[in-house]
């Protein structure tokens, strides 16, 4: 199957997302990962146990980062996302392709 190539690099932004609320369900990390992959974003998601929130680094076109925020603000029925905070993030270099879940030790 021939599909479109990756979106132009110049349109890619990288942002750090923080999801707070009742977000302790471990399935939420899989859910966020699934959403990011569906949107073709690169990055990672992990639980920040100390802070009590989920954080994710995502890179892609702005419209798709918006879609990431929207989808994850709902998430599965088992979580309640009270707030989503986003801030631009200067990545150290090009992001590896794909989106994955990091364990706390990563």
């Amino acid at each position: 199957m021939i599909r479109d190539t990756q979106p132009l690099m110049m349109n890619r932004q990288t942002e750090l997302f923080r999801f707070s609320g009742d977000v302790s369900d471990p399935d939420f990390l899989d859910w966020i990962c699934h959403r990011a992959n569906r949107l073709g974003l690169n990055g990672w998601v992990r639980k920040n146990a100390a802070g009590g929130f989920i954080e994710a680094l995502a890179s892609g076109p702005e419209e798709l980062l918006d879609a990431m925020e929207l989808g994850c603000s709902l998430g599965p029925i088992t979580v309640w996302v009270e707030t989503v905070v986003r801030c631009p993030h200067d990545s150290d270099g090009p992001m590896p392709n794909g989106f994955k879940i990091l364990t706390q030790a990563d």
Partner: peptide
């Protein structure tokens, strides 16, 4: 024809990623 989304009218300037598509 390959199921991949090519255009989203509400966001006309964005090229949809290959990951958005219909199941073929």
């Amino acid at each position: 024809e390959d199921g991949a989304c090519r255009h989203i009218p509400a966001h006309p300037d964005m090229t949809p990623p290959a990951s958005i598509g219909a199941n073929t």
